[in-house]
Write a protein that binds this DNA or RNA. Structure first.
Length: 350
DNA sequence: AAGCATTACAACCGCGTCCCG
DNA sequence: CCGGGACGCGGTTGTAATGCT
C-alpha cells in the first residue's frame, strides 16, 4: 500500500537498491526535487514521493556526514534534548550533516542506554528513582547538595551529621538547577570555563529560580518526592564521566550563587527546618516559575542554529560571571572534575 | 557451524501544519 | 473560510549485521 500521494501507482517498498539510488540522485542533482510527489515518475522510480524524499534527506543528500557520532556531537544531542525533548528535527539542526532520523536512532540505540546506565532518566535527564540517595557516603551527592541549597531557600543542608562524611539533607529540591549545563566545551573554545551555567546572582537564600531549560518530559510532573530524586552517584561512576561535567544530564549541578561567591553568606548558616507547608509552597512556587521560564527559553531556543545556540547559552550567563575566578578557584576544588567527599568543605570555602 | 538474541539503522506510517486555490 | 495536497516530524517497524551460546 502506497501513500495517498501516489496511491494510484504501484509502488515498491523496503530497502532501496543501488540502481534506485542512482536514479534518484541523478534526477535530483540535475532537476532538483521540486514537488516530491512528482519525483518518482520523473526519475523513473516505482516509489512513492514520500519515500523518495526520505531517502534523499536521510541517505543520499551530499552534505550528509556519515559515520559514527563524535563525543562532541553526543554532548550536543544530550544538551539539546534536555531542553527540547524528543524534537529530533530541532536537535539535528544543531548537528551539521546529521539528520533527525539519524539523531533519533542514535539516541534510542546508544545515548538512552548510556544515560540509563548512569542512573539517569533519558526522558527527564533526572536521576532515576532507583538511584535515589540511599547512603551519604558519596561525594557527588554532597557536592551537589551544597551547591544547590543556596538558591533553594527554605530547604537547607547540614554538614554536621557526624555519622556521615557528607550528609545530604534531602529536603532540598535537587532538580532545581541552572539552565544549560553542561555545555560542550568545544562549543566554547574562547571561554575559559569548562562547565557553564547561567550566572543568576542570587544574593540571599530566599527562593530564586534561575534560568532553566527543560524538556517537556521533565517539566510538569515535579512534586516534592520526585524533587528528591537527584542524588548520589558513586565516585567510580563519576570517574567514568567526561571531565566537562559532573552530571551529563545537566540537572542538579550547581548553585552558582554559592559557587561564584556572589552572595554574602555561605549558606551553611542559614539552616532552617522547613515546615511541610513551606515545602509544598516552595515546590509549587518553583514549579510555576520554572514552567514560565521553560516556555520562554524554549521559545527563544527554537529555530536557533548551532551558532546562535552558543550565543544564546553564553548570553544567559550574567555579565558579572567571573570566568577566571571560576577556573582558578574552583577547578582545583574538584567542582569540574571528579569529586570526593573530602573536597566538600574546601569547595565551599572557595 | 548453527541457531538465537541483540544491535544499529533504514524505512514506513500516521498525524499535524502549512499553503494555495 | 474551507478543503485538499504537500510536506515535515516523531514514533514505530523491519531488516541486515553482529554477537553470543
Amino acid at each position: 500500500m502506497g501513500h495517498h500521494c501516489c496511491s494510484k501507482q504501484k509502488v515498491k517498498r523496503g530497502l532501496w537498491s543501488p540502481e534506485e539510488d542512482e536514479k534518484l540522485v541523478r534526477h535530483i542533482t540535475t532537476h532538483g526535487h521540486g514537488c516530491w510527489s512528482a519525483v518518482p515518475k520523473l526519475a523513473g522510480l516505482q516509489r512513492c514521493g514520500k519515500s523518495c524524499r526520505l531517502r534523499w534527506i536521510n541517505y543520499l543528500r551530499p552534505d550528509l556526514k556519515r559515520g559514527s557520532f563524535t563525543e562532541q556531537e553526543e554532548r550536543v544531542i544530550i544538551d539539546v534534548h534536555r531542553i527540547l525533548g524528543n524534537r529530533w528535527a530541532q536537535i539535528a539542526k544543531h548537528l551539521p550533516g546529521r539528520t533527525d532520523n539519524e539523531v533519533k536512532n542514535f539516541w534510542n540505540s546508544c545515548i538512552k542506554k548510556k544515560l540509563i546506565a548512569q542512573g539517569l532518566d533519558p526522558n527527564t535527564h533526572n536521576l532515576l528513582s532507583s538511584h535515589k540517595i540511599n547512603g551519604h557516603s558519596n561525594g557527588f551527592a554532597s557536592k551537589t547538595s551544597h551547591n544547590h541549597n543556596r538558591n533553594t531557600s527554605v530547604f537547607s543542608i547540614s554538614t554536621s551529621h557526624s555519622n556521615n562524611d557528607a550528609y545530604v539533607d534531602m529536603k532540598t529540591p535537587f532538580h532545581h538547577t541552572n539552565s544549560i549545563n553542561p555545555i560542550p566545551t568545544s562549543l566554547y573554545e574562547n571561554s575559559t570555563i569548562t562547565t557553564a551555567t547561567t550566572a543568576a546572582t542570587t544574593t540571599t537564600t530566599t527562593t530564586t529560580t534561575t534560568s532553566e531549560y527543560q524538556n517537556p518530559n521533565f517539566a510538569s510532573n515535579q512534586n516534592a518526592h520526585s524533587l528528591m530524586e537527584f542524588g548520589s552517584r558513586s565516585s567510580m561512576e563519576m570517574a567514568t564521566l567526561p571531565s566537562y561535567s559532573l552530571n551529563p544530564s545537566g540537572f542538579g549541578m550547581f548553585d552558582e550563587s554559592c559557587m561564584w561567591g556572589s552572595g554574602t553568606t555561605t549558606g551553611l548558616e542559614h539552616f532552617h527546618e522547613p515546615t511541610r507547608h513551606e515545602m509544598i509552597m516552595q515546590v509549587q512556587h518553583e514549579n510555576q516559575q520554572q514552567q514560565q521560564q521553560r516556555e520562554q527559553e524554549k521559545a527563544k531556543f527554537e529555530g536557533q542554529n548551532s551558532t546562535n545556540m552558543e550565543n544564546l547559552l553564553i548570553g544567559n550567563m550574567s555579565s558579572n560571571f567571573d570566568f577566571e575566578f571560576v577556573e582558578s578557584a574552583l577547578m582545583p576544588c574538584g567542582l569540574y572534575g571528579n569529586v570526593s567527599p573530602m573536597d566538600d568543605q574546601l569547595a565551599w570555602d572557595c
